[in-house]
């Protein structure tokens, strides 16, 4: 079963809010805009779904709602997550559908006031597809990922 571990202020403002989630994906710290994020959840059993793009890991139930689980590793073209055992996911709502983004860990919720800078690095194709900017946090530069791009996966490129 699943359990919500942390709730975030729900905001559906289309513009970027200053609030960001710092998560670890594929061993890297990245930032996610908190706008579309509903909560951070722990999931254990993913019901697999055949005949769908490989980055769709399957379905889980969050209370009476069904979440589509997105394997971020796969979406970034970096292989496949383990998809079994207890895992951490960020629940987001995109276009009215609810998804869970599989991440290694959720590290922090921070306010980043500065607007993101354009990405001026040579990224691998997967990262380049998902990244929408660079933000500064604690003196380090973090890639800002677009949750919608993670959900869309490689096929959308």
């Amino acid at each position: 079963m699943t359990a919500a571990t942390m709730s975030l202020p729900a905001t559906h403002c289309p513009t970027m809010t200053a609030l960001h989630l710092i998560v670890r994906i594929a061993g890297q710290q990245v930032a996610l805009p908190a706008g579309p994020v509903d909560s951070v959840i722990r999931i254990d059993t993913i019901s697999p779904v055949p005949c769908v793009p490989s980055h769709i890991a399957g379905l889980v139930a969050l209370r009476s709602r069904v979440l589509t689980i997105v394997d971020c590793l796969d979406s970034l073209g970096l292989g496949r997550s383990l998809r079994t055992g207890v895992q951490c996911a960020v629940a987001v709502t995109i276009d009215g559908h609810r998804y869970g983004l599989l991440v290694d860990a959720v590290l922090d919720v921070v306010t980043i006031a500065e607007a993101p800078r354009p990405v001026d690095l040579a990224l691998s194709p997967g990262w380049a597809r998902a990244a929408c900017g660079l933000v500064e946090h604690d003196g380090a530069a973090l890639l800002l990922l677009d949750p919608a791009a993670l959900v869309a996966g490689p096929a959308a490129a």
């Binding site: 769908v52 769709i56 069904v66 589509t68 559908h97 959900v151």
Partner: peptide, 8 residues
């Protein structure tokens, strides 16, 4: 029954 995500 709820609509499934577009990818599915």
């Amino acid at each position: 029954v709820k609509p499934a995500a577009p990818a599915m």
